[in-house]
């Protein structure tokens, strides 16, 4: 239990990614996928996935913030005193989130309204903090960018999968478009776009990922 709490406090992912470039990419996007394997950052994963469109925007936001904050944290890693590194990381992440938020407000007002507070909540998304803490603090800038891209993509893909199924089953539509024959015949299952559907969808996705990955991840619990 104590380990778990510690892991939750610093959001330290399980192992550090070793190796370089391509290995980092593979590690972040699949083997150590932030959402389905490490189960970090589920708040926004659940909240915005009622429509595929929202999921895609959220995925883009996380990729942007993760890459940006990883780069800056990595550039400053030798200058940041160890004691205040957390505050420094939060400030850097918050800056990038504000950038993205202002961008959404300026060009995509409707989307900004729909996502509501969840854009701001990217700051407390454990994935970004976790990557900054576990990877960018120890690695050179280029590798940190790769790691940011990998984890961002890994997160965005799972988000898109959940968003797709929730919108598909919940409304019978995809990206707001009706599907010719299917939409007439299918009775939408409202529960999928409401809160419980999100929990079910994520639980099942995590279960399926565990099943595909086979026994080696099961020692995690």
């Amino acid at each position: 239990m104590a380990d778990q709490q510690l892991a939750c406090a610093t959001c330290q992912p399980k192992g550090l990614c070793g190796g370089k470039g391509i290995l980092t990419l593979k590690e972040g996007a699949w083997a150590n996928n932030p959402l389905s394997i490490q189960v970090l950052g589920i708040c926004s994963a659940l909240a915005v996935t009622n429509r595929l469109e929202n999921s895609l925007v959220m995925g883009a936001a996380v990729i942007f913030v993760c890459v940006g904050s990883n780069l800056i944290v990595s550039l400053l890693r030798k200058r940041t005193p160890h004691r205040i590194r957390m505050i420094a990381e939060v400030a850097i992440i918050a800056t990038f989130v504000i950038l993205f938020d202002q961008f959404l407000k300026a060009f995509y007002w409707d989307m900004s309204k729909q996502l509501g507070p969840y854009v701001g909540l990217i700051i407390t998304n454990c994935i970004i903090m976790g990557r900054a803490e576990a990877f960018a603090l120890q690695n050179p800038p280029i590798l940190s960018i790769v790691d940011g891209v990998a984890n961002g993509i890994g997160y965005a893909v799972v988000l898109a999968i959940i968003g797709f199924f929730r919108e598909f089953l919940g409304t019978g539509e995809i990206l707001g478009h009706t599907i010719p024959v299917f939409s007439k015949w299918y009775t939408p299952n409202q529960i999928m776009i409401l809160a419980p559907g999100a929990f079910f969808a994520l639980g099942i996705v995590i279960g399926i990922f565990n099943w595909i990955k086979g026994p080696e991840t099961e020692e995690k619990k």
């Binding site: 189960v39 419980p196 559907g197 999100a198 929990f199 079910f200 994520l202 639980g203 099942i204 995590i206 279960g207 399926i208 565990n210 099943w211 099961e218 995690k220 619990k221």
Partner: peptide
Amino acid sequence: CFEGVAIAMVVTG
């Protein structure tokens, strides 16, 4: 494959 987090999510649902 559902042990731990996955089943916790379903129960939360």
